[in-house]
Write a protein that binds this DNA or RNA. Structure first.
Lengths: 249, 249
DNA sequence: CGAGATGTTGAATATAATCAAACAACGTGG
DNA sequence: CCACGTTGTTTGATTATATTCAACATCTCG
């Protein structure tokens, strides 16, 4: 009988545990904000966390809505975007597993977030998260560090949007994604592009046609190969970085 | 005699006091990061502070240099910029009195900062500043708040750079400067443009010629008047905001 | 298998960059 | 004080290039 009781408890817990198991065994445990906490401290985070799943193109938060929750993405990809009244859209960034959603905002979300494909994340009510942040200074420091990194990235993006030609923009995007893949212990090539061309266009300030033509140019120059539109092999990473106008790194 | 001694002390102090007098009487006391501290607490900040002055176009920090100091601008204007190897430049923002320089960076400066005209600022060694930030949690919180605001601004800039037409870019720039002037208790119009056209171009991702032509268009549409190139009267703020593709606010 | 969504390519058009020149403002030195 | 060169701004003509409009190809999925 005791065994049965234990089993019930086990099956109840998944409602409030991380998508890939408890935080302790989570894929992004070492890179997300929760890495600031020791294993016994994450339990506090876990206790206010709700695991959430999104379908492709499902909207998670909408620009202008009150900021009621913050999130850590555990799998999949999110696009962050801001829009104009006439429908024009700028994607300000793509979130990968381990990234935090809610760094920039105070009272209301200033950007929308949608899932590119299926995605999973941990949701935290802001009030309870704020309390935890006060309780664990390391957590606050790590959030601040993430915010600074996001600010540097946003400024880098200003350079890309304001001063790079279309092929240069695309090259810099591919190098960025490749570098991020490496941070996630994935191969630098081929790089996976789960988002449609329209998203890349709205991220780089171009039209879909120009994005497509820029891919073709990079392919014709032998810098990349495209087994399919959503998978890009980087043939010459150094030359690609040079096209992007970036130091070889 | 006592009078003479007091006079000597008075003339010695300026070496280590804020440009406009002690912190307690500083112009930006209420808006800069130091507003987080009570009057008796700012003394700690004052004690590690060095007043600095810059001439027009003098470089304060250079992209890539080790981040040894952080600053609060007390008068004048700074331009923040990032550059490409071939000389192309993107200005990521203009700093006004009360703004903090050093929000985004960790070990090294990721952007250069130069004075637009003559400028004055408070300089703080990072090591000592870090210690004060730990000592005064309110100071850390205010810095974090500033960083979040800078991130929101940088994302707004991505929209402007990626999706607005030249006249729209310029209109949004003028509205931004006007709003910031109001925050500084200055009139919303005329707005002062101390920077050259080349800076505006590098901020908006345009050429100087296109900036100039866009000014002419706004003038011909009766939205602004230009008594001289560095002073812009906003004739129809609502229409200007509409051109910028922004909500009327 | 067909229909819609997504991606690529082609031709045209619009538009910002480039090249060039005129003009104004300013400080310097004769 | 004025001529002069310098710098910054504006305007004009031309060119390069990304967008637009259009067609076609490819892929997905009922």
């Amino acid at each position: 009988m005791a065994v049965v009781i234990r089993a019930v408890r086990e099956t109840d817990r998944p409602l409030y545990r991380a998508p890939c198991g408890a935080c302790a065994t989570c894929d992004v445990r070492t890179m997300a904000v929760c890495a600031a906490l020791a294993d016994d401290e994450v339990e506090a985070l876990e206790s206010i966390m709700t695991a959430t799943h999104l379908q492709a193109n499902e909207m998670l938060v909408q620009e202008g809505d009150p900021r009621s929750k913050v999130f850590t993405l555990t799998s999949g990809m999110l696009r962050l975007s801001v829009g104009l009244p006439d429908g024009r859209r700028q994607i300000t960034g793509f979130l990968l597993p381990g990234d935090y959603l809610g760094l920039a905002d105070d009272e209301i979300y200033t950007a929308s977030a949608e899932a590119v494909g299926a995605a999973a994340l941990c949701a935290f009510p802001v009030r309870q998260m704020d309390a935890l942040v006060e309780r664990f200074p390391k957590l606050k420091d790590r959030l601040h560090r993430f915010t600074r990194a996001a600010l540097r990235q946003a400024r880098e993006n200003q350079l890309i949007l304001g001063r790079l030609a279309p092929v240069e923009k695309l090259a810099s995007f591919l190098v960025l994604l490749s570098d991020r893949a490496v941070e996630h212990r994935l191969p630098a090539s081929p790089v996976s592009l789960p988002m449609p061309r329209a998203d890349i266009a709205d991220y780089l300030g171009l039209t879909v046609e120009t994005v497509s033509r820029s891919f073709t140019k990079l392919r014709n120059q032998g810098l990349v190969a495209m087994p399919d539109p959503h998978s890009i092999e980087i043939c010459d990473r150094r030359a690609l970085a040079a096209v992007a106008g970036l130091p070889p790194h």
